[in-house]
Design a protein around this nucleic acid. Structure first.
Length: 308
DNA sequence: GGGTCAGTAGCTTTACTCAG
DNA sequence: CTGAGTAAAGCTACTGACCC
């Protein structure tokens, strides 16, 4: 039986059972566990809750009775995330409009665990794509594609056979297509495209807008029923241009448009009175934009208040 | 890694019963 | 007779095992 603790995705576990106390365990593993939970849930606050719960779980058993603290925490976090997603899925069935992940913005004041995500280029587009997978598929897909676990290790973590894990992964890949987990591509080109887009937004230059959007450009907006946002995705460049024309006339004059690092990718934020009202993330297709993810739901932006 | 197939769970539709 | 409630049947999607 393989031991998941031998995997290379967490800090070394040489003799964790002798760790002085929980504080040391917490500081060693918090970021990696948060990273996994955020990938699973697409929510900063829920990922934090899951990590807290995993450590609470650990607290309830003696540290010395666990052979490998690292694999124990990894397993608990995976399974807590699966359980959470199962119940969250029911809630999302009645979610108003499109559901998008909570964005993580690089900046002073952000939580160190969130900064890990920001540095991992975990794009909103990728997290949005993962929404097509059921909780178990999502866990298997991430463990395999992102963390390079073997099927034997995955089977141990999720309590299924290696054969079955491989099949789950195969089905998951079919569902999400061949989109790479990491966004990749030329960052400077992406930054330029976003700057061009910002200019268009501020100048209402429709001709330039057409030159930076791909034909299948799609706009997803998440207002969560708490902020004004289109309830259904807007497909196609023509509809998107019509949408932007409509929006342009309604942009408040005090709204400041700024470049931002959204989940490790070039993006935009719009703020007024030092408060972020819009976070815009993009999907890139070479030097064009193929999708815009507009996160307006105040619940999903409240963790950005501490940013400077 | 992926195709196939049997088993299973869950959802929808239909038929039936019973009270008002 | 009608409408509400419930059980049974049918269908569909998902899951897991086996095989190439």
């Amino acid at each position: 039986m393989p031991d998941v603790s031998e995997s290379k995705h967490l800090p070394p576990d040489d003799d964790m059972t002798n760790m002085a106390d929980m504080t040391e365990v917490y500081s060693s593993y918090k970021s990696a566990l948060f990273s996994l939970a955020y990938r699973m849930l697409g929510s900063v606050s829920d990922a934090e809750d899951i990590v807290q719960e995993a450590f609470l779980n650990l607290n309830q058993v003696s540290l010395h009775s666990i052979h490998h603290v690292k694999s124990y925490l990894w397993k608990v976090t995976t399974n807590l995330s699966i359980d959470f997603l199962r119940s969250a899925r029911k809630r999302r069935e009645v979610y108003v409009g499109s559901w998008l992940p909570e964005p993580i913005i690089k900046g002073k004041g952000a939580d160190p665990a969130e900064q890990v995500i920001a540095n991992e280029e975990l794009s909103i587009a990728f997290l949005h794509l993962l929404e097509n997978l059921n909780p178990v598929e999502r866990a298997v897909f991430l463990l395999r594609e992102v963390y390079s676990y073997s099927y034997d290790e995955i089977a141990q973590l999720i309590g299924k056979s290696p054969d079955n894990s491989r099949k789950i992964q195969s089905r998951a890949k079919q569902k999400v297509g061949d989109l790479s987990p990491k966004a990749g591509g030329d960052r400077s080109k992406k930054e330029k495209t976003v700057r061009d887009f910002m200019e268009v937004v501020q100048s209402n230059n429709i001709e330039k807008l057409l030159s930076i959007l791909s034909d299948d450009f799609t706009i997803y907006s998440d207002g969560g029923g708490k902020a004004k946002a289109n309830l259904r995705p807007i497909f196609g460049i023509k509809r998107a241009v019509a949408f932007f024309k409509g929006v342009y006339s309604k942009i408040p004059s005090n709204l400041i448009v700024m470049e931002a690092d959204v989940n490790g990718q070039p993006g935009m934020i719009m703020k007024a009175d030092d408060q972020i009202f819009y976070v815009l993330a993009f999907q890139f297709d070479n030097d064009k934009l193929s999708a815009l993810y507009n996160i307006v739901n105040p619940e999903k932006l409240k963790h950005l208040k501490k940013l400077k």
